[in-house]
């Protein structure tokens, strides 16, 4: 997975983001000020930067100007939803932005989109005897190909991208089937059952009481 630099001066927010990154398998570094961020970037190979606009020392925009030659994708985190800030961010080459307060799943989704756009997503995912190849949309168990329907594969991908986080049935419908799908949440249950059976993941895909499902993988 990717190595992400989190530049955020608020300790709680910084910890919140990094805890989530850790859950879904990313590695991270933290910086609390602009100069610190620039210093870290000089020393570490970084795939993505989550950058707060309001920073002590140098603000986020100045940091962006200074690190532009590195061509590292940037997602701006801003407490202001001012249009001017967003436009300035995009002009400076930001890949996306997210406004506080944000939902974790939204942040993770945006991170995935930006990573995919920059070809930074891993080609495959390995767990137990299961190997998932995203590009080929193939799944193997013990090297044997397993036949998954398109929808099952979508669901599996969503679970993997948000692993260790419980996803409600509604959220899964939205992410794997699309916003406009008018199906029943029981459809999700049926597909989850299929996945568990086909991959032998009865214990990996947990039912979280009152919430939904969670793919549990060692972090």
């Amino acid at each position: 997975m990717a190595h992400i630099l989190v530049v955020e001066d608020e300790q709680p927010i910084s910890d919140l983001i990094t805890m989530n990154l850790k859950l879904v398998g990313h590695t991270y570094s933290k910086a609390y000020t602009g100069p610190e961020a620039i210093e870290t970037l000089k020393q570490e190979r970084t795939d993505l930067i989550l950058l707060d606009v309001m920073l002590p020392g140098l603000d986020g925009f100045t940091v962006m100007e200074q690190i532009a030659p590195l061509h590292i994708p940037v997602i701006l985190i801003t407490a202001k939803n001012a249009l001017a800030d967003r436009i300035k961010g995009f002009e400076l080459g930001a890949d996306d932005y997210i406004i506080k307060p944000f939902e974790i799943l939204e942040l993770l989704a945006r991170i995935n989109v930006v990573l995919r756009r920059n070809d930074q997503t891993p080609a495959s995912f390995l767990c137990d005897a299961v190997e998932v190849r995203f590009a080929e949309r193939q799944v193997r168990v013990d090297q044997e190909p397993v036949d998954l329907t398109a929808r099952e594969f979508e669901l599996l991908e969503v679970l993997i991208r948000n692993r260790n986080i419980a996803l409600s049935r509604e959220k899964l419908l939205e992410l794997a089937w699309g916003y406009d799908y008018a199906g029943d949440t029981r459809t999700v249950d049926v597909h989850i059952r299929q996945l568990r059976r086909k991959l032998g993941w009865e214990d990996r895909i947990k039912t979280v009481f009152k919430l939904g499902y969670r793919l549990e993988v060692q972090v």
Binding site: P12, L23, K100, P101
Partner: peptide, 30 residues
């Protein structure tokens, strides 16, 4: 926004994520 973001986020983490004991404590204290 800042406290609300972290409160919302940590609460979400506690309820939905597969956290270890230490992270649970951290989230709660935040």
């Amino acid at each position: 926004r800042t406290p609300l973001t972290s409160m919302q986020g940590f609460a979400e983490l506690l309820t939905s994520a597969n956290l270890d004991r230490e992270d649970q404590m951290k989230a709660g204290s935040y």
